[in-house]
Design a protein around this nucleic acid. Structure first.
Lengths: 115, 115
DNA sequence: CCTTTTTACTTCGACTGATGGAGTAATCAT
DNA sequence: ATGATTACTCCATCAGTCGAAGTAAAAAGG
């Protein structure tokens, strides 16, 4: 299970990623993040909705009211071109981060190698 | 250049990693992190020293006064067994994080593929 | 029809860790 | 003696996450 400190800085990327695949709304995104992370990262609702506010303020996503529903009306979000660029930048930064942190991570201990 | 949000949660791991390789002190660790990250992550002094306080409080490292110096006396740190375990746990978490975030990251755009 | 469940989102106050800025302290080079 | 470099400390602030609680609308069930 992933702690929030390590995911911090990537919540925005996860959301933008899913919105690149099509418009969606909070509850569905929350479920999809949990599903796609294999249950390793059940994003908190407050984290998610505060991220929406941030992304909207930055012009990365735009909200609209959905009509169909199975409960309270949904607020859907569309990713903007600027949002797509921000997503690509985040992905590039992620590649750099992986390379850097890997230099400080030891290899996984393998069973059967010795001892 | 890596932002602090993405490194947050890994500062402790970087420090523990370097201390696994031998005792060291703030200034040297700071330089080594910058060097080993290829300049991508120049850790801030305040970030570093506040991390030392955290790690010490958690029993992961213990300080002692060094004798040799080329300036103000150094505070060296030794990693404890508990610190080594914490480092191993952090590395394991890092592997999980990589797998999870990769599921939300698009591939690097390759030149020459088409258009 | 009234209650409960599920869907869906909001608000609030607290906490952690990173930050900029300033300051302190000791040694070394000039 | 003066300044540069090494080495660390303190403080106030900020962003992002979190727990807890609450609101709102539609569906499900008796």
């Amino acid at each position: 299970m992933l702690g929030s400190d390590v995911m911090r800085g990537y919540n925005d990327m996860l959301i933008l990623c899913l919105l690149c695949e099509g418009d969606s709304y909070g509850y569905a995104i929350s479920r999809e993040i949990e599903r796609r992370s294999g249950g390793e990262y059940p994003i908190k609702e407050t984290t998610l909705y505060s991220a929406f506010g941030r992304l909207e303020k930055q012009g990365y996503i735009v909200p609209y009211q959905g009509s169909e529903t199975q409960g309270r009306p949904r607020t859907y979000y569309t990713i903007t071109d600027e949002g797509k660029r921000a997503y690509a930048a985040k992905c590039a930064e992620w590649r750099v981060l992986k390379a850097v942190v890997d230099r400080f991570a030891k290899e996984e201990t393998k069973n059967g190698s010795n001892s």
